Amino acid sequence: MPKLSVIIPCYFNEDNIPITVPELIANEANFPAGLTFEYVFVDDGSRDNTLQALLRARAQYPDRVRVVELVGNVGSYNAIVAGMAHTTGDCMAVITADMQDPPELMVQMYDYWLKGFKLVIGNRQDREETGLTKKFAETFHWLMKHLALSNIPDGGFDFVFFDRQVRDDVVRMQERNSNVFYLMVWLGYAYVNIPYVRRKREVGKSRWTVQKKIKLFIDSLLSFSYFPIRAISVAGIGLGTIALLYGLYVIGLKIFEPQGPAGWTALMVVVLFVSAFQMIALGVIGEYVWRGMDAARNRPLYVVKSLYGADATPVVSR
């Protein structure tokens, strides 16, 4: 029978772990008998007692739970790649530590994997969250679908089930400043999409700040789309056309009305507008240049401080 590795990135999740681990263990009963499991928890530089909670879980389930402790916080997506690099399963899943995604959906995902699909996506058809959090998520994924990757499912996703071959591709690429889930779709494997309603977070406080959301949007857009550069080109052509027409107007005014108004106000407006556009264009180009430099430095995506349970033997479900 195959082995299933479940990757769970953790950041300030000390209150979630005592709930998450038993729920994952209980969910094993829904799978076919004989399937083996391992749960790879990645502590992404948490500064609370997340690591201690994970070690207690490992002491309780030493044959299932493995812990990867990173030196510092590198972001959830890099933490996921770290977890992927330390898995040993034939198939894998990524799920959040706060249990907003239903673990029982993995059973259906596993069935599709057995049918030959190397990537199965659980996409958020709706979410119990309200307010700005929901609106931002909807806007983010709508923009990504229409500006970058047209083949991603509606509603967004970060709950995936995939084959070891997909894992090997992602880990080998070592993509920086990117979106690991979009990267799986970008690889081109045919996938199955399973819609579900994402739960509201019941325990703990989300550390997914507005700054991190904005950075993720910029990283995702620049990694999978040339739209920003193309927009600069189109805007430049438009401004050039306007400047040409305005120049013809000024020349005509000078010829036919030598005593006409000097046009200082209009000139200042044009100068300020063009200057603002140039600064924005330089900023966009700078984002691309910085990402190229970051890739050229070839620094590691993460640094592992400690591994707990690297030699653990998987348990067989009954």
Rank of each mutant, 00 (worst) to 15 (best):
T133K: 01
P102D: 05
D43I: 06
W186L: 00
F41Q: 05
V274Y: 15
L149V: 15
Q278W: 13
R167T: 12
Q125S: 05
Y288A: 02
A57C: 09
A243D: 14
V234W: 13
F277P: 12
F117Q: 01
R176K: 15
E14K: 12
L70D: 05
Y182I: 04
A295H: 11
V234M: 10
G247C: 04
R64A: 02
N123E: 09
R164P: 04
Y246C: 02
T265W: 13
D15W: 06
G34R: 09
A59W: 05
A29M: 02
G131D: 04
S223L: 04
A235V: 14
G309V: 10
Y302W: 14
Y39Q: 00
C91I: 15
N30F: 10
W142H: 11
R207H: 10
Q259H: 14
S306H: 07
V40D: 02
L272V: 15
L132T: 11
L24D: 02
K145C: 07
A148W: 13
G260S: 11
F157N: 03
S46L: 01
P103L: 04
L149K: 09
G75R: 08
A82W: 13
G260F: 13
G156F: 05
T50P: 14
H141Q: 13
T88N: 10
P228W: 00
A97S: 14
I229T: 13
V234N: 07
M293Q: 06
F41W: 08
G122T: 04
Y308H: 11
L239H: 07
V6E: 08
I17K: 01
M109Y: 11
F31P: 09
V71S: 06
G72M: 07
L222A: 00
F217D: 05
A312P: 02
A97V: 05
P62M: 05
I25C: 02
E202F: 07
H141F: 15
K305E: 11
V171N: 04
F256W: 12
V180P: 13
F161Y: 15
Y288E: 03
A26H: 04
T88Y: 09
L244E: 04
G116L: 08
T20G: 00
M279W: 14
F273G: 08
F224H: 14
Y302V: 13
A29P: 01
F162A: 06
